[in-house]
Design a protein around this nucleic acid. Structure first.
Lengths: 210, 210, 210, 210
DNA sequence: CCCTAATCGAGACGGTACGTCGTGTCTTTCG
DNA sequence: CGAAAGACACGACGTACCGTCTCGATTAGGG
């Protein structure tokens, strides 16, 4: 809940109002949770600074002291909870790892609370280029690297051609999933993911012309 | 638009203000244009009902009489201007048609005013599932059909296997472009589109396993 | 305004929409009744042109064609219904006539629908000097003359000194009643009226010093 | 009023904007003055919450936080400025005190800004029974007690019969004045007031029948 | 006997004000 | 000095009426 960074003050996690040095970990956590809960319960429109403050039992000023906007809060909440949830497994088998990872990605995006937050953040990114940049810098870039891991491992193992453009291939796979989630709204079930992976494996393993 | 006759009469500022059957086309057009202009000029946050009303020279009530929300207005504006702009050409050549169409799609999404509107609408769809449904019903479904045309024509000509899953293939192509636009923010230049099309042509024309 | 002209058409009061010469008596009546009813049912704030039009089944324009404001309508309605209701009786007995008339006035002002309308009109007169003038011209002046009748008759009969300032005396009697109704809100019961009349009779009949 | 100190500091336009306990006296005063000024300058119809807010340099919300309606504001403004203006003098002489007080009342009602506000409030009271109650509770009842003072003092001095119904007598005097102001619109000049007082003195000092 | 002009219903229009909600800033008080 | 509390100026919301207008139907007169 108040993971580790908080451990500086840690130990005594009693309520405090006012503190000579350092911020209240309790307030920070309450804000992030409140933002998350509000998004899930009432949708993006229900996430207002006032509602967060009220439901976190925190003063508005405390929020403005540490965050710049409600998307900033949601991003923090998202990173806190969900960042490491999408690390692909490593069983030494490309098909298995890729399938598992993409299934997990699909499930995360469409079923989890964290996915709802990410979708909201991506929505906001369409309205605010500056925030889009931040979102990419603080999450999407890293996630893309994680998404590429199975392919890179397979290339190192010789399971895939060494000259494969891993980034492009991953973008196509992941892009198909995001397209369904963000644009068409079609369900992203396991069968769909499997077809995607199968198609990729076939074409990637057939000798490239070059 | 057709107000010239009225304004020519001068003196008393008469114009079309209310009428028994049917609404004021003048007001409708002014609202759609104002919404479009505001989005391009000031971004989504600058599109407020009040700003639209003011810059269209229209009463707020007139807007609320005909539209339910600012996204409803933007969608109308978008459909009005840009719906038919993305019809793929038909030169009888799959590679050429597909390339041209996807290049046009990429250009539309990343460079045109209509693309800016569509991106905003897709952003809003992430915040509002009800609007997402409307957006799909009123635009995305139809566009998807248009996107499939080159493949279907090629299949009819025998340029592509008859059992190809055109919808899935198109989603993968289009999805890659949307992924760049909506998620990664990477530029979608002609080279990228060409690589996409080339990859598709190679794999689609090689004998399918079934 | 156009009172009598309307009654000329009279006789055949069947519905008609459109008429070469002359207005619809039916519409006129419906408007006046609707205004009255609305005032009684929902108070002055409930009397809006739109509500009158709706509940009279009449177009707004029809109202604006014949009346200038909602107070104009209420005044018409008031004059139609209630004008002659406050004519003092003539039994040839000052005390009896005066008592009866003032009791009737008190009852009218505090208990009747017509009284509610008059109070509303007097309220509006405080906000709008122009309307105050109209109200006095079209009703209050005449009523004041009626109020003076008992005293004048008594003077002619010799029941009151010939040099009595009837207007001043009546103003004091009527003024006391209006003061209770408009200002203090105290009930204006028969006992109060009787005390008023008794006091007047005593002082008016004792020889004036002049 | 006391905002000069703030504006003198110049540069950064700091002033009193929000504070932990208690409201901004500056905002309160500005609102009351603006309401008063608007009533005098533009009449009751010109007193809108928006106009008050604008001309007081205050946010609408600040008004709604502390007042319930524009009449509530006007009542506050009235009580602030004018409440104690109508205290009768005490020279130990009934005729002189009464004459002076009623002249002052007449002048206040017909000539002063405070009188314009009171007339507007009385007008509104006719439209809104709830407000009528408030107006009586917060002003009229007290004023009535003040109006009675000269008579009560005279009774204590023996200048008037001990069994005089002071309230009734005062209501008749004051009622006559209000009647002219609110109903007939006749001027309320000194001569009128003097006649009123003379009449009262004569009848009150002649032996009462009981 | 139709033509024409006045009036009716309906209702859209440009406006103004309403009362509410959220924003981001500021001030005070407490610990 | 951080935090709770909350008042403030501001701006947008969505609604209610205003008074004006345009329409199409209806109905007398008058030509």
């Amino acid at each position: 809940m108040e993971q580790d960074g908080a451990t500086a003050t840690a130990g005594t996690d009693r309520a405090h109002r006012g503190n000579r040095h350092g911020r209240s970990e309790q307030a920070r956590t309450a804000v992030l949770e409140a933002a998350d809960d509000l998004l899930v319960a009432k949708g993006f429109a229900g996430v207002t600074i006032e509602a967060i403050a009220a439901s976190a039992g925190v003063a508005k000023q405390t929020i403005y002291r540490w965050w710049t906007s409600k998307t900033d809060i949601l991003l923090d909440a998202f990173l806190q909870d969900a960042a490491e949830e999408l690390t692909p497994p490593d069983h030494g088998d490309l098909g298995r790892d890729l399938r598992a990872h993409l299934r997990q990605l699909a499930h995360f995006l469409t079923r989890s609370d964290g996915g709802a937050v990410l979708r909201a953040l991506l929505g906001q990114a369409q309205h605010d280029p500056a925030f889009a940049t931040v979102l990419r810098a603080r999450y999407l870039t890293e996630q893309r690297l994680r998404d590429m891991l199975p392919l890179e491992r397979a290339m190192r193992r010789g399971d895939l051609p060494a000259d494969l453009d891993a980034a492009a291939e991953v973008d196509q796979l992941v892009g198909s999933i995001f397209h369904r989630v963000l644009v068409t709204g079609d369900p992203v079930d396991d069968a769909f993911v499997d077809r995607l992976v199968d198609g990729f494996l076939i074409r990637a393993r057939s000798a490239p012309p070059s």
